[in-house]
Computed example of a mutant assay.
Amino acid sequence: MKRVMIVRHGESEWNAERRLQGQADIALSAKGRAQAEALKPVIAGLSPDRTICSDLERAHDTAGLLGIADAECRAELREIHVGEWTGRPIEALRADDAARYQGWRAGTYTPPGGESWSDFVARTTACVTQALQTSEKLLVVCHGGVIRALLESLIGLPPKRIIPVGPASLTILAERPTGSGNMRLELFNYSPLVPVLDAPD
């Protein structure tokens, strides 16, 4: 049975400030490092046979803290590019135009200079499905938006129906029945610490 184990990076310095990151290369906070270290034994117990991760610092550092020394860094797994919204406080974006912000969360609005949802889904899904061809237990260390994109493309769950997953949380998709090519949601937003249910994007 094929499994895709997807981990969001630990809390970053901008997550802590609730600022939208997109592809800005922001480091983990001290709390984010601790969150990733707490998840390490869970990942070890799942024994992934291959790990791919975003090449942004907060993701590949999370992979290292999970005990993965040989993660393959992929630019295709970067977070969605948010253009002129990069670095803006989420509350300010909501205050400026709540409908546009919700449209962006739902994949129907692209910020000025940003990446469209459809292009984002295509690049992230292509990377993961290609890696799955040579893996039975694939670990993907990435970003919240990437997780939403994969849930849409692999199991048909639209982004407007998904909360932002918590930092250093684990989501698992499994092929059921085995050999069918159909992926099903096996685990969502799991954290060995207190689950974060109001995580920022």
Rank of each mutant, 00 (worst) to 15 (best):
K2M: 07
V4P: 06
I6C: 09
H9I: 06
G10M: 13
E11M: 14
S12W: 08
E13F: 01
A16I: 01
E17F: 02
R18N: 14
R19I: 03
Q21C: 06
G22K: 02
D25I: 06
L28C: 02
S29W: 05
K31A: 15
A34D: 15
A38H: 14
L39R: 12
K40F: 03
I43D: 13
C53F: 01
S54N: 09
S54W: 05
D55T: 07
D55S: 14
D55R: 07
D55Y: 05
L56G: 07
R58W: 08
H60W: 15
D61R: 14
D61I: 04
A63D: 05
A63H: 13
G67S: 11
G67D: 10
I68H: 02
A69Y: 05
A69P: 03
A69V: 05
A69Q: 14
D70T: 13
R74A: 09
E76K: 09
E76T: 03
E76P: 00
E79C: 10
E79R: 05
H81V: 00
H81C: 14
W85M: 04
E91M: 07
L93H: 07
D97Q: 06
A98T: 08
A99Y: 00
W104L: 04
W104G: 02
W104K: 03
G107T: 08
Y109S: 02
P112W: 05
P112F: 01
G113S: 03
G113V: 02
S116P: 03
S116A: 12
F120H: 01
T124H: 00
A126Y: 05
C127V: 04
V128G: 06
Q130P: 00
L132Y: 07
T134Y: 06
T134W: 11
K137R: 15
L138F: 02
L138G: 11
V141N: 09
V141D: 09
C142D: 12
G144P: 10
V146G: 08
R148N: 11
R148G: 08
L150D: 00
L151S: 09
L151N: 06
L154I: 07
L154A: 10
G156F: 00
G156I: 04
P158H: 13
P158D: 09
K160Y: 11
I162K: 10
P164E: 12
S169T: 07
L170V: 10
L170Q: 07
T171Y: 08
L173S: 11
L173C: 11
G179F: 06
L185P: 06
S191F: 10
L193Q: 14
D198S: 13
D198W: 03
A199Q: 02
P200Y: 10
D201S: 10
D201Y: 13
